[in-house]
Design a protein around this nucleic acid. Structure first.
Lengths: 191, 191
DNA sequence: CGTTGACATGTCTGTGCTGACATGTCGAAG
DNA sequence: CTTCGACATGTCAGCACAGACATGTCAACG
């Protein structure tokens, strides 16, 4: 239920904002961290209002409603931020595939892993580009944005290195082509 | 929609299995990679049967139905495994919190990051334990299980190091309590 | 013989999320 | 004056998933 807290947090940062404003921030700053669609966001703002964690502080043109966090909202947000343990992201598409890699020929599996290594390396380079374009900015938002960026840099590097290593592991474990099978069978009587 | 493919893959590995059997595997081997509940799994097996990707190959006592993948199922599975690009896991609870860390005093934020570093270090140790208990096992499942384990080891180490680094960044950026500012400046010119 | 625990299948409600749809306002440019 | 693009709010259907509920069989132990 983190969208709730993301919205609360953005309102706390901004002081006040409309659903439309928040949507803009979600699509810019939080796109890679916690994406949200418009329908979700407006629904959540409605619920937050009902729960009295936010309130409408102004109504402007085009039906615009400016929201701000209430005292209860601020409290709820800080509790979430510091007290509640972050939920670990359990599902991992990549590792699920790795689990099944034994079902295809080793060469195909190695190819798959090398592709993943390349994809992560690409991601790393992309983030390096973002990093370079960020050196000028200042302020607390930039400080914490940089922490998140560094996480991405380290993660993509780790994953790229891991995938390269994994492909090598498979290459060593099974030297592959049919010609070598006989050798293997002669060398090791069982399994 | 990866539960579908996880079920397909497990059936391909096992040859044939009941929903109950698969549930056991999900709760043991795939718990940290792709958890599934019983209701989800039985529902999915029903859908897979309707789609003719799996079929009931035997019925046993206690209403047991043994499923096996069909030719179409095998094809669909291999397509997913090798052709479809793994979807990146976009939502990240931890980074979302980091984004908002500027809303609390720097000391609290540093505390938060150090806690995260400790939690990741714990995770790392836990996985090292699993690694040690795995050295005896053989077979292709163990080979690919080890690849996934190594990913976990590298990930937890990376995250622990990152959190430690991030806490230090904040400590440097805002040397905090006014009294100590002078001391720090005198003691260490930079970095 | 009765109880317990593993085996085994299924349904239902609620929630979070996505994508599509629906509706309307306002300012600026042509 | 019309049209277009940014601003702005909302609903709805559908899917994945979690957790609870419902039902029943079979083997083993006491």
């Amino acid at each position: 239920m983190s969208l709730r807290h993301a919205a609360l947090g953005l309102l706390a940062l901004r002081g006040e904002a409309s659903g439309y404003d928040l949507l803009g921030i979600f699509n810019e700053s939080l796109e890679h961290v916690w994406p949200a669609t418009q329908s979700q966001l407006y629904t959540e703002l409605g619920k937050l209002t009902d729960a009295e964690l936010v309130e409408v502080v102004a109504e402007g043109g085009r039906g615009r409603k400016a929201y701000a966090v209430t005292e209860a909202g601020r409290k709820e947000f800080e509790h979430w931020l510091l007290e509640e343990p972050p939920t670990v992201n359990r599902r991992n598409d990549l590792l699920l595939r790795v689990f099944f890699l034994g079902l295809v020929p080793s060469e195909r599996a190695q190819e798959f892993l090398r592709e993943r290594a390349a994809a992560s390396a690409d991601m790393h380079e992309r983030l390096r580009g973002v990093e370079r374009s960020l050196v000028t900015e200042q302020g607390s938002l930039a400080v914490h944005g940089r922490l998140a960026l560094e996480w991405g840099l380290r993660f993509s590097r780790m994953q790229s290195e891991w995938a390269t290593w994994a492909a090598e592991q498979l290459a060593e474990a099974e030297p592959a082509p049919a010609a070598q099978v006989a050798v293997r069978q002669a060398a090791q009587p069982s399994e």
